[in-house]
Write a protein that binds this DNA or RNA. Structure first.
Length: 383
DNA sequence: CGGTTCGGCGCAGTATCTCG
DNA sequence: CGAGATACTGCGCCGAACCG
């Protein structure tokens, strides 16, 4: 669990009042805080060296320090960890569920669980013992298929099947020959980047498995805040960075309307006129999709009731990347009032949904992501 | 070294559909 | 025809890397 940075306290209006309530045990709140020093019981609150008693508007005294460069040092909470007196700063407080974090020990990330369970079962099945339990049948079929395609698995290795889902290897968005692409620019090198489980074969080939769980699945998810879409430019109504303009060109977006969505967000009405538009798919899109989809990996997609399994080969990638005809652009989401841009397009293999939005509780876009739904893929089976 | 950014993972609330 | 299931849609948390 992470700590809440000083700045994070001001991201949501409830946090500083909650902090104050907790220190003074007001409104039914407990004065206990999870901190890296242990469970901390608050007793006194000091702001800029002066002790304060509770008052209804005391939180405003803290909020006034929001923009102070050393604000974090100016608020001190004194109390005890068991019997020992301690003092902490706001940024020493852990982000518990009360402050909008994930409940410790309660929520499990199902995608990560899927990786762990399937990886463990595949290794177990490889040992030649009777292979049973959750995912046993699926693990066996996957192993068979991989051996058919890439040859026998190398059993001499200490770990013939490696779980490397935690590596989060970057696949950044870049400008490329007038359009955009995802690095590395050769599609077939994406398998090694996005792999969650890697299977090693005797001939030194590797099978890269991409594991996904749930109904929302994503091909790419790149940060765009610092290299493409600067808030400083967008708030003035136009993206100026060349790289940013290349993104807009590739996606068939209107620069001014794009900015207006975020600039005018929050007024409770549609930001741009005719916010739903039919646009011809720019040719640049195909090249972008080749690297966004990538190739040389196997997709294993659990949807709770069947696991889709298919090979994203070079040839499948090529046909999956071709989109022609029209696409639908939603400035401000489906209803035109959201802080996002959505673009929908399709081909025989996928329904694509691309969005540009903020994923870090802000307004101006921080990320661009490409979600998809699978239609028909050559060789796709449901395990 | 503390704050910010990026890429990982879907999540959760609401609307719509379906079926006994 | 109402409740449970499913789909749709806008949005979020986390750890690691990065950076000044």
């Amino acid at each position: 669990m992470a700590q809440i940075s000083f700045k994070d306290f001001f991201k949501y209006d409830y946090r500083v009042p909650l902090l104050v309530d907790k220190v003074f045990q007001m409104n039914g709140k407990s004065n206990q805080f999870a901190t890296k020093k242990g469970l901390f019981k608050a007793e006194k609150l000091f702001i800029e060296g002066k002790e304060y008693k509770y008052s209804k508007n005391l939180y405003k005294r803290i909020e006034a320090l929001q923009d102070e460069s050393n604000g974090v040092k100016l608020v001190i909470i004194k109390g005890k960890v068991s019997r020992k007196s301690e003092e902490i700063q706001m940024n020493h407080i852990e982000k518990t569920a009360e402050f909008g974090g994930q409940e410790k020990g309660k929520k499990v990330n199902l995608g990560n669980l899927f990786e762990e369970e399937l990886h463990a079962r595949m290794l177990e099945c490889l040992n030649g013992k009777s292979c049973k339990g959750k995912y046993a049948k699926e693990a066996t079929t996957i192993i068979d298929t991989l051996q058919d395609i890439n040859g026998p698995i190398n059993m001499e290795l200490q770990e013939p099947i490696v779980h490397e889902g935690g590596k989060n290897q970057p696949r950044p968005l870049v400008e490329s020959s007038g359009g955009i692409g995802i690095l590395p620019l050769q599609a077939e090198r994406h398998g090694e980047k996005l792999t969650d489980v890697t299977v090693h074969h005797l001939n030194n080939k590797k099978s890269y498995l991409s594991l996904k769980m749930g109904s929302t699945v994503t091909f790419m998810n790149s940060g765009v805040a610092s290299k493409f879409f600067l808030e400083s430019e967008m708030s003035k109504g136009e993206v100026k960075l060349k790289a940013g303009k290349s993104v807009l060109k590739t996606l068939g977006l209107n620069n001014k309307d794009f900015c207006k969505v975020f600039k005018d967000y929050g007024k409770g009405k549609v930001m741009v006129k005719n916010h739903i538009r039919q646009v011809r798919v720019p040719t640049l899109m195909n090249k972008f999709l080749e690297t966004a989809i990538g190739s040389n990996y196997f997709m294993i997609h659990g949807k709770g009731g069947g696991i889709d399994f298919y090979h994203m080969s070079k040839s499948t990638n090529r046909s999956a990347s071709k989109v022609q005809g029209m696409m639908t652009v939603y400035y401000g989401g489906k209803d035109g009032k959201g802080k996002r841009i959505d673009i929908e397009f399709s081909n025989q293999h996928f329904d694509f949904k691309l969005n540009i939005r903020n994923k870090q509780s802000g307004i101006y876009p921080s990320h661009m992501m490409l979600d998809y739904k699978t239609k028909s893929i050559p060789g796709k089976v449901t395990l």
